[in-house]
Amino acid sequence: MSTRTDTSSEMVVAGSFEGDLRRYLRGLGGLLVFLVVWWVGAMTTQPSYLVPGPLDSARAFVDLFTTSTAIVVPVLGSSLVLPTGLAHLAQTLFHYVPGLLLGAGCGIGLGLAMGWNGALDDWLRPLVRVLRPIPPLAWVVFAIVWFGIHHTGAAFIVFVGAFWINFYGAYGGVEGVSSDLTDAASTLGVERDLSMLKLVALPSAAPQVLTGFRTSIGRCWMIVVGAELFGAPGVGYEIINASNNLAMDTSVAYMFLISLAFLCMDVGFRLLEGRVLAWR
């Protein structure tokens, strides 16, 4: 049978290495231009704290890793000494990670349930319409009165942010499951609703669920910094703290630290996503 030729790939991209190199160099050029503009801006602005220069900021960034700070690990209560930058990053992660994971878990759970169960959808849709537009940071007042503005309060705000993004990812994913696939599954012996959810709806919705989660990784970094501006410990708090001392170069160093942390998580998750969704 000669069908094997049917799958022969037509994707032979000529000169893709040169294309990559060109894109790489252009990107580098853009960064350099930005650095020069920043440097000139810093040189010509007085007083100097208004725009800290790239060199001062780089020095402040290095300082984050040459000094060390002791932090308290929540729940365990033990104290931990780390390079200052990592110490404050760890403080942020102490509420970022639980907030993100719990929010994503609950959001995906409710999204799947509502997308799959029409009655539940009827019950909750109006409520979702009302609650969904509230910006997560607006909940900060309740975070403060319920939990106090510390790790738990900040985690709560991150939870709210992660919840909705993941909710919509899962909800849309399950709603979009093709009826052809569920029909095929029922002719192949899938009888119970729960089996259909597990065997067809979930894998079929996986791409949207994962996209929702990846979006929430970034959104929660914005939210977490917002929450820390109100006083929860972590990198966001350090940005404010440094600026109160007019150490704007340290603020910039923390801003880049956040950017770096987000980049690492995003790239890591994309790799994972690519492996899980190899079938796409």
């Binding site: 093709s178 052809d180 696939l181 029909d183 095929a184 002719t187 192949l188 012996g189 067809v200 894998p203 079929s204 996986a206 079938w279 796409r280």
Partner: peptide, 16 residues
Amino acid sequence: LDRGMVFQEYALFPWR
């Protein structure tokens, strides 16, 4: 299971 079905648009599970 006594009646198998073949679909016009294949309806294969793309993740399998």
